[in-house]
Design a protein around this nucleic acid. Structure first.
Length: 766
DNA sequence: GTTGGTATCTGTGGA
DNA sequence: AGATACCAAC
C-alpha cells in the first residue's frame, strides 16, 4: 500500500465502505443525489488497484468526459499515476477507441468518420429529397430520432421493415416509407465509412455479437472489472454491450453499476430505468449485492425534503428517501416576475444581494434553465451588474461554421468517402461546382452504389466544372499524401491555405468576420496542442501503446467533445447552464429559472405521464444541485419565437410543500423596471393571473388528518378534498386509464375551475 | 453558377 | 426571432 492508501477507507460511511470493499461479484449501488456516489466509484477503483488489479483491467464507463476526467484525478490522489492506465471514459469514446482497432472486422475502415447529429440530419434530409418525399411530412429531425431509437433498441433496418407493428405506426403517422429511409440511411453511412453516435454503440455490439477472430473473448479477458456510472441513463443497447462483456458462463461477473432512478433524465435518447430493474433480476442468481446511499452530504434539510416531496408525484420509483444532517438551513425562495426580462433582473439583483450578505464567490452560484436559449437574458443583466459569468452548452466551438468547414476538409483527407464532409466543402469556398453538378455526381454515385468521391473519376472532367473538379481532387489527394509525412497541424495549415478558407476569412473585415478568423486560428492552435501534447491523456492498452497523434485520431477525439471539455477553470464566475448539463455538479446557491408550464415542464413532454415524470426528475436534479440556497423563479410572460407568450407558473412549484418555502412577503414588491413599464407592459400586467401559491395560501387543510383516496376511485360528482385547494366538486373525468384528468370546481380558490391529473393529485373523497 | 431577396418552418435536452 | 429553403434575376 502507498502511504496515502490506508486512509481512504476511513473517509467513508458504513454503506459507502461496503460498496467500495465488496469488489467481487455483481453490485448495484442506488445512490441519491449528494450521497457520495463519485467518491464510492473512485475509491472502489483505487481499492481494486491497491489490492493488486492492474489498472488496465478496469473499465469504467461514464456519460461525460468531464466525469471521466474527474474520476481519474480522484483515483490518482489515492494510487498515483497508475490511475492514468485505467480504461475510464464515456461509453462513446471508449467504444470508438475499441472500434478503431477492430472496425475492419465488421467492414469499416479503421479511420472511420464519426457523424455528428448535424451530419446525420443532413444525410436524412438528402435521402428524403432523393426519394421525392415531402419534407414537411417527413420531418428530418423526427425521423432521425426514430432511427436513433430503433438502433438503441437493437432493431436493424431488416427487423424494422419486417415488424408489422412499426409499419402500422408509421402508416398512422403518415410516414410509410420510414423503413426504407432507415435502410438507406444505414447503407449510406456504411458506404461513407461513417458511424453516427448510435453506431459507436451499435457497431461495437455487432462486433461482439458476430465475434470475428473471437474478439469477444479478448475483451472479456481484458476487462476483469467493469463499473458503470449513471446507470439510469443507459439505454438498452448500452446495457446489452455491458452484459455481453460480463454476463456469461464462467464469468466472475465483477460488475458494479451506480445509479439513481430519480435522476434519470435521458429517456429522450433511449435511456430506460428498466435497466436498473433488469440488472437486479439478471444478476439475482449470481449473488448481487445492493447498497443504498441515502445520506445526502450536500444540501440542508429544507432543500432535501422539498426534493423528497416533489419526487413522490412520480408514478414509478424505487422507494428511497434522502436525508441530511446539515441542519434546517434556508427556506426556498420563489421569485415571481412579470416578464422574462424582469426575471433576469430580479435574479441578478438577488445574486448581488446574496454575494454581499453571505459572502459568496461567483463560483458558488449557478443559474440553471430548461433550454439553452434562456441564457441570453441573464447574460444581459449580469453584464449590467458586472458580475462575471460563463455560459456552458449551447453552440459548442466545434459547431461553428468556420470550424466545421476546416474540419470537413480534414475529414475528407482522412476519409474521402465521407459524404457529409464532401458535400460541405466541394464548393466552399466557391470554386464553380454548383448544385446541378453536385446532383449529377450524387446520382452517379447512387446508381453505382459507391461514394461521391469514388464517383468523381468516372464523372470525368466533362462540362464547365471539369477543371474545378480536377483541381479539387488534386488538392485532396495531395493533402492525403502529405499526411504520411506531415503531422496533423502542418496538414491543417496547408489545407486551410490551399483551400482558400483563410483568404476568404481574411477578406471579411467585419467584427464577426474577424471573430471567425480567430476561431479558425484557435482551431489550428488546438490541433497543434494535440500534436505536441505529452502522452499523459493516453490510455495505453497494456501501458505500452504509443500515443496516436494522427489526424484520424484527432478527428475522432474532437467528434466526441462537448463545450464542457475545451475549457479550463478560468477564474471566478457564475455558472449558467441547462439543468441537464448540471447533473453531477453542486453549488452553494442555485437559481432554477423559467419555472413555467410549457417551458419547465417542456411542452414537448407534457402530453404523456412518462414525459412529465421525466421533467419532474429533471426538476429534482435541479433542486438537489443546491447546497444552501435555492431560488426558483418564473415569469408570467416571455418572448418566445417572436412574440410575447403567457404561461402559468409551473406545476412543480405547487409540488413543493409550503413549509419549505420562504414567505413571499416583500418579495413581490414592484421592481423599478416594472414601474417604468410602458403601456405595453401595463397590458401584460392586466393579463397577469394571480400566482397560485398566493391564492392557495388561504385554504387550510390539516395535513395530519388528510388521507388521500386511491386515484382510480375518483369519479364525477364526488365531493373531494385537496391538500392545497381545499374542498371541491368533481365536474367530470376524462382521459384513459392511468391518464385520467378531472375537472374540479374548488370552493375557496380564486380560479375555482381546475383540471387535475388524477395520477398526481392527492385527493380525499368526502 | 451565383447573388440577393423573400417565404417558410421550427421550436428540448446532448454523446 | 432566426435559420433555411426556394426562386428570380444576373
Amino acid at each position: 500500500m502507498t502511504t496515502t492508501g490506508g486512509s481512504y477507507l476511513e473517509q467513508l460511511n458504513d454503506v459507502q465502505r461496503q460498496a467500495v470493499t465488496n469488489t467481487d461479484g455483481p453490485v448495484l449501488v442506488v445512490a441519491g443525489p449528494g450521497s457520495g456516489k463519485t467518491r464510492v466509484l473512485t475509491f472502489r477503483i483505487a481499492h481494486l488497484i491497491e489490492k493488486g488489479t492492474a489498472p488496465w483491467e478496469i473499465l469504467s464507463l461514464t456519460f461525460t468526459n468531464k466525469a471521466a476526467r474527474e474520476m481519474k484525478e480522484r483515483i490518482s490522489k489515492v494510487v498515483g499515476s497508475r490511475a492514468e492506465r485505467v480504461w475510464a471514459g464515456t461509453f462513446h469514446s471508449i467504444f470508438a477507441r475499441i472500434l478503431r482497432v477492430e472496425a475492419e472486422k465488421i467492414g469499416y475502415p479503421s479511420n472511420f468518420t464519426i457523424y455528428d447529429s448535424d451530419d446525420t440530419k443532413s444525410l436524412v434530409s438528402t435521402i428524403i429529397k432523393e426519394m421525392n418525399l415531402d419534407k414537411n411530412v417527413y420531418n428530418a429531425n423526427s425521423i432521425r430520432s426514430r432511427i436513433s431509437s430503433a438502433k438503441s433498441n437493437l432493431i436493424t433496418p431488416k427487423l424494422y421493415a419486417d415488424n408489422e407493428e412499426f409499419r402500422a405506426q408509421d402508416r398512422m403517422a403518415k410516414v410509410p416509407h420510414l423503413a426504407t429511409i432507415y435502410q438507406k440511411y444505414v447503407m449510406r453511412c456504411k458506404r461513407a465509412g461513417a458511424m453516427d453516435f448510435d453506431d459507436l454503440l451499435y457497431r461495437l455490439f455487432e462486433l461482439l455479437q458476430k465475434n470475428p477472430d473471437n474478439v469477444l473473448e479478448k475483451y472479456r479477458k481484458k476487462f476483469k472489472y467493469i463499473l458503470v456510472d449513471e446507470f439510469q441513463d443507459t439505454n438498452t443497447l448500452q446495457y446489452a454491450i455491458v452484459r455481453k462483456l460480463v454476463n456469461y458462463e464462467g464469468s466472475d461477473r465483477n460488475i458494479c453499476v451506480v445509479g439513481d432512478d430519480a435522476q434519470s433524465i435521458y429517456a429522450f435518447r433511449g435511456a430506460t430505468i428498466q435497466n436498473i430493474l433488469d440488472f437486479e433480476e439478471d444478476f439475482q442468481k449470481h449473488g448481487i449485492k445492493v447498497f443504498k446511499l441515502e445520506q445526502n452530504y450536500r444540501s440542508t434539510d429544507h432543500i432535501v425534503q422539498a426534493a423528497n416531496e416533489l419526487i413522490t408525484y412520480n408514478a414509478r420509483q424505487i422507494p428511497k428517501r434522502i436525508w441530511s444532517d446539515k441542519g434546517e438551513g434556508q427556506r426556498i425562495r420563489i421569485i415571481k416576475a412579470m416578464t422574462d426580462s424582469e426575471e433576469g433582473k430580479r435574479v441578478s439583483d438577488t445574486i448581488m444581494e446574496q454575494k454581499n450578505r453571505f459572502h459568496l464567490s461567483n463560483s458558488d452560484i449557478a443559474i440553471l434553465y430548461r433550454t439553452n436559449s434562456q441564457s441570453r437574458i441573464f447574460e444581459e443583466h449580469l453584464r449590467r451588474l458586472s458580475i462575471p459569468y460563463r455560459v456552458f452548452g449551447g453552440l459548442s466551438f466545434y459547431q461553428r461554421k468556420e470550424v466545421k468547414d476546416l474540419i470537413a476538409y480534414l475529414r475528407l483527407i482522412v476519409n474521402p468517402r465521407d459524404e457529409e464532409a464532401f458535400r460541405r466543402v466541394i464548393n466552399f469556398p466557391k470554386r464553380g461546382i454548383g448544385n446541378s453538378t453536385i446532383e449529377k455526381i450524387a446520382n452517379l454515385a447512387n446508381s453505382k452504389g459507391i461514394s461521391m468521391w469514388d464517383a468523381l473519376p468516372e464523372f470525368g472532367a466533362s462540362g464547365r466544372s471539369g477543371k474545378s473538379i480536377a483541381d479539387f481532387v488534386d488538392m485532396i489527394t495531395k493533402s492525403a499524401k502529405r499526411a504520411d509525412t506531415a503531422n496533423a497541424y502542418e496538414l491543417a495549415i496547408y489545407i486551410a491555405k490551399r483551400s482558400g478558407l483563410i483568404d476568404l476569412l481574411k477578406s471579411d473585415t467585419t467584427v464577426e468576420g474577424m471573430g471567425r478568423l480567430e476561431n479558425l486560428n484557435a482551431l489550428l492552435d488546438g490541433i497543434n496542442a494535440f500534436v505536441e501534447e505529452e502522452a499523459t491523456d493516453v490510455i495505453g492498452t497494456e501501458g505500452t501503446a504509443p500515443p496516436d497523434k494522427s489526424l484520424a485520431s484527432y478527428l475522432q477525439n474532437i467528434a466526441l467533445l462537448t463545450d464542457f471539455d475545451n475549457n479550463e477553470n478560468d477564474g471566478d464566475h457564475i455558472t449558467l447552464m441547462s439543468v441537464h448539463s448540471a447533473k453531477g455538479l453542486e453549488f452553494k446557491s442555485v437559481f432554477v429559472v423559467g419555472l413555467e408550464e410549457k417551458l419547465f415542464p417542456s411542452y414537448m413532454s407534457m402530453d404523456s405521464i412518462e414525459g412529465l415524470d421525466e421533467e419532474r426528475r429533471l426538476f429534482y436534479v435541479a433542486v438537489t444541485r443546491a447546497e444552501q440556497f435555492l431560488t426558483l423563479s418564473y415569469a408570467n410572460a416571455r418572448y418566445r419565437y417572436g412574440s410575447m407568450r403567457y404561461n402559468e407558473p409551473s406545476r412543480f412549484l405547487e409540488e413543493i410543500p409550503r413549509q419549505h418555502v420562504e414567505s413571499t412577503a416583500g418579495v413581490r414588491s414592484a421592481s423599478p423596471e416594472m414601474s417604468s413599464m410602458s403601456n405595453g407592459g401595463a397590458r401584460i400586467q392586466g393579463n397577469f393571473s394571480r400566482p397560485r401559491s398566493a391564492e392557495t395560501s388561504k385554504v387550510k387543510v390539516d395535513p395530519s388528518t388528510f388521507k388521500p383516496s386511491p386515484h382510480e376511485s375518483i369519479e364525477a360528482g364526488m365531493r373531494v378534498l385537496h391538500l392545497k385547494f381545499g374542498e371541491g366538486k368533481v365536474i367530470s373525468v376524462d382521459g384513459g386509464k392511468g391518464n385520467r384528468v378531472a375537472t374540479i370546481h374548488f370552493k375557496d380558490v380564486d380560479n375555482p375551475q381546475r383540471r387535475i391529473m388524477l395520477k398526481f393529485a392527492k385527493l380525499q373523497i368526502l
